[in-house]
Protein backbone atom coordinates (compact mmCIF):
# COMPACT_ATOMS: atom_id res chain seq x y z
CA UNK A 1 0.00 0.00 0.00
CA UNK A 2 1.17 3.52 -0.73
CA UNK A 3 2.46 5.22 2.37
CA UNK A 4 3.17 8.57 3.89
CA UNK A 5 6.34 8.77 5.93
CA UNK A 6 6.50 11.13 8.90
CA UNK A 7 10.01 12.04 9.99
CA UNK A 8 9.61 12.53 13.74
CA UNK A 9 11.95 14.57 15.90
CA UNK A 10 12.99 13.63 19.39
CA UNK A 11 14.01 16.31 21.86
CA UNK A 12 15.09 15.52 25.43
CA UNK A 13 13.90 11.97 24.98
CA UNK A 14 10.38 12.96 23.89
CA UNK A 15 8.74 13.12 20.49
CA UNK A 16 8.26 16.79 19.66
CA UNK A 17 4.77 18.20 19.50
CA UNK A 18 5.40 19.27 15.90
CA UNK A 19 5.87 15.61 14.96
CA UNK A 20 2.34 14.85 16.19
CA UNK A 21 1.15 17.77 14.07
CA UNK A 22 2.73 16.01 11.09
CA UNK A 23 0.81 12.89 12.05
CA UNK A 24 -2.40 14.96 11.90
CA UNK A 25 -1.59 16.14 8.37
CA UNK A 26 -0.43 12.67 7.32
CA UNK A 27 -3.63 11.03 8.58
CA UNK A 28 -5.78 13.51 6.69
CA UNK A 29 -3.92 12.84 3.45
CA UNK A 30 -3.85 9.09 4.07
CA UNK A 31 -7.60 9.00 4.60
CA UNK A 32 -8.24 10.82 1.33
CA UNK A 33 -5.75 8.70 -0.61
CA UNK A 34 -6.37 5.36 1.02
CA UNK A 35 -2.74 5.13 2.00
CA UNK A 36 -1.16 4.43 5.36
CA UNK A 37 0.97 6.47 7.73
CA UNK A 38 4.38 5.28 8.85
CA UNK A 39 6.99 7.20 10.75
CA UNK A 40 10.66 7.27 11.55
CA UNK A 41 12.31 7.86 14.90
CA UNK A 42 16.09 8.08 14.67
CA UNK A 43 18.43 8.46 17.60
CA UNK A 44 20.35 6.73 20.31
CA UNK A 45 18.29 5.35 23.16
CA UNK A 46 15.15 6.50 21.36
CA UNK A 47 13.08 3.35 21.80
CA UNK A 48 10.86 4.88 24.49
CA UNK A 49 10.13 7.79 22.16
CA UNK A 50 9.34 5.37 19.33
CA UNK A 51 6.97 3.42 21.59
CA UNK A 52 5.28 6.65 22.59
CA UNK A 53 4.83 7.64 18.94
CA UNK A 54 3.43 4.20 18.07
CA UNK A 55 0.91 4.46 20.91
CA UNK A 56 -0.12 8.08 20.40
CA UNK A 57 0.38 8.43 16.66
CA UNK A 58 -0.28 4.92 15.45
CA UNK A 59 0.97 3.11 12.37
CA UNK A 60 4.29 1.45 11.83
CA UNK A 61 7.13 3.33 13.52
CA UNK A 62 10.62 2.59 12.23
CA UNK A 63 13.19 2.89 14.96
CA UNK A 64 16.71 3.61 13.75
CA UNK A 65 19.10 3.29 16.67
CA UNK A 66 22.78 4.02 16.31
CA UNK A 67 25.58 5.58 18.35
CA UNK A 68 26.17 8.03 15.52
CA UNK A 69 22.53 9.17 15.72
CA UNK A 70 23.03 10.42 19.30
CA UNK A 71 23.20 13.97 17.93
CA UNK A 72 21.68 15.36 14.79
CA UNK A 73 23.90 15.31 11.74
CA UNK A 74 22.49 15.77 8.26
CA UNK A 75 24.61 12.87 6.98
CA UNK A 76 23.70 10.32 9.68
CA UNK A 77 20.02 11.26 9.80
CA UNK A 78 20.00 11.32 6.00
CA UNK A 79 21.07 7.69 6.04
CA UNK A 80 18.28 6.82 8.48
CA UNK A 81 15.70 8.56 6.29
CA UNK A 82 17.03 6.79 3.18
CA UNK A 83 16.72 3.44 4.97
CA UNK A 84 13.13 4.23 5.97
CA UNK A 85 12.39 5.28 2.37
CA UNK A 86 13.77 1.97 1.13
CA UNK A 87 11.55 0.12 3.61
CA UNK A 88 8.34 2.10 3.08
CA UNK A 89 8.62 3.46 -0.52
CA UNK A 90 6.58 6.49 0.53
CA UNK A 91 4.80 8.72 -1.95
CA UNK A 92 5.01 11.58 0.53
CA UNK A 93 7.57 12.45 3.22
CA UNK A 94 6.69 14.97 5.91
CA UNK A 95 9.20 16.92 8.00
CA UNK A 96 8.74 19.79 10.45
CA UNK A 97 10.14 23.13 9.30
CA UNK A 98 12.64 23.25 12.16
CA UNK A 99 16.44 23.61 12.13
CA UNK A 100 16.58 19.84 11.55
CA UNK A 101 13.82 19.77 8.95
CA UNK A 102 15.12 22.60 6.79
CA UNK A 103 18.65 21.17 6.98
CA UNK A 104 17.69 17.63 6.04
CA UNK A 105 14.49 17.63 3.94
CA UNK A 106 15.88 19.47 0.86
CA UNK A 107 18.85 17.07 0.71
CA UNK A 108 16.46 14.12 0.78
CA UNK A 109 14.27 15.69 -1.93
CA UNK A 110 17.33 16.17 -4.15
CA UNK A 111 18.55 12.63 -3.48
CA UNK A 112 15.14 11.23 -4.44
CA UNK A 113 14.73 13.69 -7.34
CA UNK A 114 11.31 14.49 -5.92
CA UNK A 115 8.98 17.45 -5.56
CA UNK A 116 9.84 19.74 -2.66
CA UNK A 117 7.73 22.27 -0.82
CA UNK A 118 8.63 23.88 2.48
CA UNK A 119 7.20 25.69 5.47
CA UNK A 120 3.60 24.77 4.64
CA UNK A 121 0.78 25.83 6.93
CA UNK A 122 -1.85 23.55 5.45
CA UNK A 123 -2.59 20.94 2.81
CA UNK A 124 -5.72 20.26 0.77
CA UNK A 125 -6.00 16.55 0.31
CA UNK A 126 -9.32 16.00 -1.47
CA UNK A 127 -8.78 15.61 -5.20
CA UNK A 128 -5.32 16.82 -6.09
CA UNK A 129 -2.83 17.62 -3.36
CA UNK A 130 -2.34 21.33 -2.77
CA UNK A 131 0.23 22.64 -0.30
CA UNK A 132 -0.47 26.04 1.20
CA UNK A 133 2.38 28.24 2.29
CA UNK A 134 3.38 31.84 2.61
CA UNK A 135 5.76 33.70 0.34
CA UNK A 136 7.35 37.15 0.58
CA UNK A 137 7.87 36.79 4.35
CA UNK A 138 4.19 36.34 5.07
CA UNK A 139 2.88 39.09 2.82
CA UNK A 140 1.29 36.72 0.26
CA UNK A 141 -0.12 33.19 0.35
CA UNK A 142 0.55 30.58 -2.30
CA UNK A 143 -0.89 27.27 -3.48
CA UNK A 144 1.74 24.75 -4.60
CA UNK A 145 0.82 21.67 -6.62
CA UNK A 146 3.33 18.83 -6.98
CA UNK A 147 3.57 16.98 -10.29
CA UNK A 148 6.16 14.36 -9.37
CA UNK A 149 6.69 11.69 -6.75
CA UNK A 150 7.79 11.43 -4.07
CA UNK A 151 6.71 14.70 -2.52
CA UNK A 152 8.90 16.00 0.29
CA UNK A 153 7.18 18.67 2.39
CA UNK A 154 8.06 20.56 5.55
CA UNK A 155 5.35 22.00 7.78
CA UNK A 156 5.43 25.00 10.06
CA UNK A 157 5.38 23.95 13.73
CA UNK A 158 2.01 24.89 15.21
CA UNK A 159 0.24 24.79 11.83
CA UNK A 160 -2.35 22.30 13.10
CA UNK A 161 -3.27 20.52 16.31
CA UNK A 162 -1.15 17.56 17.34
CA UNK A 163 -2.76 14.20 16.57
CA UNK A 164 -4.65 12.76 19.48
CA UNK A 165 -6.16 9.35 19.92
CA UNK A 166 -4.51 6.15 21.03
CA UNK A 167 -3.89 3.71 18.24
CA UNK A 168 -2.50 0.31 17.58
CA UNK A 169 0.91 1.32 16.28
CA UNK A 170 3.94 -0.90 16.35
CA UNK A 171 7.66 -0.30 16.44
CA UNK A 172 9.85 -1.97 13.83
CA UNK A 173 13.63 -1.79 14.24
CA UNK A 174 15.40 -0.42 11.18
CA UNK A 175 19.02 -1.29 10.45
CA UNK A 176 21.10 1.68 9.34
CA UNK A 177 24.78 1.36 8.46
CA UNK A 178 26.62 4.54 9.42
CA UNK A 179 30.36 4.88 9.81
CA UNK A 180 32.22 7.84 11.32
CA UNK A 181 33.56 8.78 7.86
CA UNK A 182 29.98 9.34 6.70
CA UNK A 183 29.67 12.31 9.02
CA UNK A 184 30.97 15.22 6.99
CA UNK A 185 28.95 17.67 9.06
CA UNK A 186 29.69 16.59 12.58
CA UNK A 187 28.00 17.74 15.78
CA UNK A 188 30.41 19.31 18.28
CA UNK A 189 28.25 21.04 20.89
CA UNK A 190 25.22 23.22 21.57
CA UNK A 191 25.56 26.63 23.19
CA UNK A 192 22.41 28.00 24.73
CA UNK A 193 21.41 31.62 24.15
CA UNK A 194 22.55 34.09 26.78
CA UNK A 195 20.08 36.58 28.10
CA UNK A 196 22.56 39.37 28.92
CA UNK A 197 20.44 41.21 31.45
CA UNK A 198 17.21 41.67 29.49
CA UNK A 199 14.62 39.06 30.33
CA UNK A 200 11.56 40.01 28.33
CA UNK A 201 9.69 36.92 29.46
CA UNK A 202 8.89 38.63 32.77
CA UNK A 203 7.83 42.03 31.40
CA UNK A 204 4.13 42.93 31.71
CA UNK A 205 4.34 45.46 28.91
CA UNK A 206 6.64 45.32 25.89
CA UNK A 207 7.03 47.99 23.23
CA UNK A 208 8.80 46.52 20.21
CA UNK A 209 10.23 48.29 17.19
CA UNK A 210 11.06 46.80 13.80
CA UNK A 211 12.87 47.64 10.60
CA UNK A 212 10.32 50.41 10.12
CA UNK A 213 12.27 52.43 12.70
CA UNK A 214 14.88 52.94 9.99
CA UNK A 215 17.82 53.94 12.21
CA UNK A 216 19.38 52.86 15.51
CA UNK A 217 18.88 56.20 17.29
CA UNK A 218 15.12 55.88 16.85
CA UNK A 219 15.04 53.23 19.58
CA UNK A 220 16.20 55.53 22.41
CA UNK A 221 14.31 58.43 20.82
CA UNK A 222 10.94 56.84 20.05
CA UNK A 223 10.51 53.32 21.45
CA UNK A 224 12.27 53.50 24.83
CA UNK A 225 10.33 56.62 25.97
CA UNK A 226 6.99 54.83 25.43
CA UNK A 227 8.29 51.72 27.19
CA UNK A 228 9.46 53.93 30.08
CA UNK A 229 6.19 55.84 30.27
CA UNK A 230 4.30 52.56 30.52
CA UNK A 231 6.79 51.04 32.94
CA UNK A 232 7.50 48.33 30.39
CA UNK A 233 10.43 46.90 28.48
CA UNK A 234 11.69 47.46 24.98
CA UNK A 235 11.80 44.69 22.37
CA UNK A 236 12.71 44.38 18.72
CA UNK A 237 12.35 42.31 15.56
CA UNK A 238 15.27 40.45 14.08
CA UNK A 239 16.46 42.95 11.43
CA UNK A 240 17.04 45.46 14.25
CA UNK A 241 19.36 43.00 15.98
CA UNK A 242 20.98 41.89 12.70
CA UNK A 243 21.86 45.50 11.96
CA UNK A 244 23.49 45.80 15.37
CA UNK A 245 21.02 48.46 16.57
CA UNK A 246 20.17 46.42 19.68
CA UNK A 247 21.70 43.30 21.29
CA UNK A 248 20.16 39.88 20.69
CA UNK A 249 18.59 39.85 24.16
CA UNK A 250 15.94 42.28 22.85
CA UNK A 251 14.89 40.05 19.97
CA UNK A 252 11.38 38.63 20.04
CA UNK A 253 10.60 35.62 17.87
CA UNK A 254 11.51 32.08 16.93
CA UNK A 255 15.24 32.73 17.19
CA UNK A 256 14.89 35.17 20.07
CA UNK A 257 12.60 35.26 23.07
CA UNK A 258 9.03 34.06 23.37
CA UNK A 259 6.99 36.57 25.33
CA UNK A 260 3.45 36.73 26.72
CA UNK A 261 3.07 40.18 28.28
CA UNK A 262 -0.27 41.73 29.22
CA UNK A 263 0.32 44.33 26.51
CA UNK A 264 2.54 44.04 23.43
CA UNK A 265 2.90 47.08 21.20
CA UNK A 266 4.51 46.42 17.80
CA UNK A 267 5.64 49.48 15.85
CA UNK A 268 7.10 49.20 12.34
CA UNK A 269 6.98 45.39 12.44
CA UNK A 270 5.37 43.62 9.47
CA UNK A 271 4.44 40.38 11.25
CA UNK A 272 6.51 37.64 9.64
CA UNK A 273 5.71 34.23 11.11
CA UNK A 274 9.06 34.03 12.91
CA UNK A 275 8.19 37.19 14.81
CA UNK A 276 4.58 36.19 15.42
CA UNK A 277 5.44 32.88 17.07
CA UNK A 278 7.34 34.81 19.71
CA UNK A 279 4.53 37.21 20.69
CA UNK A 280 1.15 36.08 19.42
CA UNK A 281 0.14 34.65 22.79
CA UNK A 282 0.43 38.06 24.43
CA UNK A 283 -2.75 39.02 26.28
CA UNK A 284 -3.36 42.18 24.25
CA UNK A 285 -1.60 43.29 21.07
CA UNK A 286 -1.49 46.75 19.53
CA UNK A 287 0.06 47.15 16.06
CA UNK A 288 1.18 50.41 14.52
CA UNK A 289 2.11 50.11 10.85
CA UNK A 290 1.73 52.33 7.81
CA UNK A 291 0.80 49.37 5.61
CA UNK A 292 -2.85 48.41 6.13
CA UNK A 293 -2.13 44.96 4.66
CA UNK A 294 0.73 44.13 7.06
CA UNK A 295 0.17 40.61 8.49
CA UNK A 296 0.73 41.93 12.03
CA UNK A 297 -2.83 43.30 11.96
CA UNK A 298 -4.14 39.73 11.76
CA UNK A 299 -2.86 38.88 15.24
CA UNK A 300 -3.36 42.32 16.80
CA UNK A 301 -6.37 43.29 18.89
CA UNK A 302 -6.09 46.97 18.08
CA UNK A 303 -4.42 48.46 15.05
CA UNK A 304 -3.34 51.88 13.91
CA UNK A 305 -2.63 52.32 10.21
CA UNK A 306 -0.26 55.25 10.24
CA UNK A 307 3.18 56.68 10.73
CA UNK A 308 4.77 55.34 13.91
CA UNK A 309 6.86 58.52 14.21
CA UNK A 310 3.63 60.44 14.69
CA UNK A 311 1.64 57.93 16.74
CA UNK A 312 4.26 56.65 19.18
CA UNK A 313 5.52 60.02 20.48
CA UNK A 314 1.90 61.25 20.79
CA UNK A 315 1.01 58.12 22.73
CA UNK A 316 4.05 58.56 24.98
CA UNK A 317 2.94 62.10 25.77
CA UNK A 318 -0.65 61.04 26.44
CA UNK A 319 0.46 58.21 28.74
CA UNK A 320 2.69 60.58 30.69
CA UNK A 321 -0.20 63.05 30.94
CA UNK A 322 -2.55 60.35 32.13
CA UNK A 323 -0.04 59.58 34.86
CA UNK A 324 0.04 63.26 35.79
CA UNK A 325 3.66 63.59 34.73
CA UNK A 326 3.10 65.83 31.71
Amino acid sequence: MASILVIAEVQNGKVRESSYELVSFARRIAKAQGSEVRSLVAGKGASAAAEELAKKGGGEVYLAEHDLLAHYSVDAFGKAVRAAVAAASPGILLFSHTPIGWDLAPRIAAALDGAFVSDCFNVEESGKLVFLRRVFNGKLDARFVPSASPVVATFQPGATSPFEGALDGKVTPLQVAISPQDLRAKFIEVRTAQKQGVDLSKAEIIVSGGRGLGAPEKFPEVIQPLADALGGAMGASRPVVDAGWLPHAYQVGSSGQTVTPKLYIAAGISGAIQHLVGMKNSNFIVAINKDADAPIFEVANLGVVGDLFEIVPALTKAVNQAKGKA
Binding site: F116, V130, R143, P295, L302
Partner: peptide, 26 residues
Protein backbone atom coordinates in the same frame (compact mmCIF):
# COMPACT_ATOMS: atom_id res chain seq x y z
CA UNK B 1 8.24 19.02 -10.15
CA UNK B 2 6.17 21.48 -8.20
CA UNK B 3 4.25 24.44 -9.54
CA UNK B 4 2.66 27.52 -8.12
CA UNK B 5 -1.04 27.34 -8.89
CA UNK B 6 -1.60 30.84 -7.63
CA UNK B 7 -0.52 33.43 -5.14
CA UNK B 8 -2.95 35.77 -3.43
CA UNK B 9 -3.20 38.19 -0.52
CA UNK B 10 -3.78 36.19 2.67
CA UNK B 11 -7.49 35.95 3.47
CA UNK B 12 -8.37 38.44 6.15
CA UNK B 13 -9.45 36.89 9.42
CA UNK B 14 -11.18 38.76 12.18
CA UNK B 15 -8.12 40.93 12.37
CA UNK B 16 -7.49 43.93 14.57
CA UNK B 17 -10.01 46.62 15.28
CA UNK B 18 -8.48 49.52 13.36
CA UNK B 19 -8.59 52.84 15.17
CA UNK B 20 -9.47 55.82 13.04
CA UNK B 21 -9.65 59.56 13.55
CA UNK B 22 -7.08 62.25 14.25
CA UNK B 23 -3.83 61.35 15.99
CA UNK B 24 -5.26 62.79 19.22
CA UNK B 25 -8.41 60.71 18.95
CA UNK B 26 -6.44 57.55 18.19
Amino acid sequence: KIKIEKIYPPPKGKGAEILTGSTDEI
